[in-house]
Nucleic acid binder design. Sequence first.
DNA 1: TCGTAGTTGCGAAGAAGTTGCAACTGGGTA
DNA 2: TACCCAGTTGCAACTTCTTCGCAACTACGA
Lengths: 154, 154
Amino acid sequence: MSRTPLHAEVITTAPASAEEAVALLRQRGSRATPSRRFLLEALYATDQHLTADELAAGVHERSPEVHLSTIYRNLDELQRLGLVTHTHLGHGPVTYQLASHAHAHLICNTCGHRVEAPDGLFVELEARALTDHGFRVDPHHLAVFGTCADCQSG
Amino acid sequence: MSRTPLHAEVITTAPASAEEAVALLRQRGSRATPSRRFLLEALYATDQHLTADELAAGVHERSPEVHLSTIYRNLDELQRLGLVTHTHLGHGPVTYQLASHAHAHLICNTCGHRVEAPDGLFVELEARALTDHGFRVDPHHLAVFGTCADCQSG
DNA sequence: TCGTAGTTGCGAAGAAGTTGCAACTGGGTA
DNA sequence: TACCCAGTTGCAACTTCTTCGCAACTACGA
């Protein structure tokens, strides 16, 4: 009679769509509210890192009365469930993205330009941090500062 | 007649003391004010990364009337001169340190614990970022997030 | 349909940092 | 040595980003 597998207590595969994510939400004891639906749709509609404000703008296209504090609370909840992660990109607000879309960034101190960094860039760092420091690096939650090619020549 | 070498327009060796840094300040056309002296003394008195608030506390031991906005403005000026750098350590305020004391950090997402990372940890990353992306990594201005040894076992 | 625990909107508060401005002062110049 | 003024300061108000308290609302299992 169960609508969903009873053992589904851990995300094994990331939900492939906003609807699947909403289903997961309910399955985990959270409520599937409109504001959460719209937030998930906004997150699934992009592979960019978006600020709470930008996500609110996306949600407001569907439902203008959703308050920014609700966006923040829902982002917290989605992070708690492992669906969403956030990244500190230096100055400016925190950015959010689907956990499955997370990736590291190279950020130019001079012009602020952001380059997405492939995970391969960090394999040695991850290995060394683990062996030398017992530290398990999350390469998706990582901002590497420096100077981009343009600003070096400029 | 010159008190200081006329060609000293670029920091070749970092000032070894607050007094030397104050001299450098003047030499570069900035004024050597008490608030800057006290700020430099606070910076030279530690090899920790300190927040603007913590630095203000240090300055206030010598001169309680120095305003926090003055601390921020002086930190900006010292960064402009290359004496000081700042680091974003994830949540919480920016931290400042002498440019010569800068180093990367491993920051635990779970407990917030910070481990200083030796520069050697980043040699491959630096090389790859430069060859693959033309990006010159500043390994001192870097926060690597993940999970520390304690929190993995806990 | 009902009850209630989870959620929401709203406004206010908090933390960190910035800005405008009048008053002050370091240090080059006469 | 005294003077002058561009650079600096103290202060208060402001901005931005995020969190919190609380009463009203609602999703959803019974």
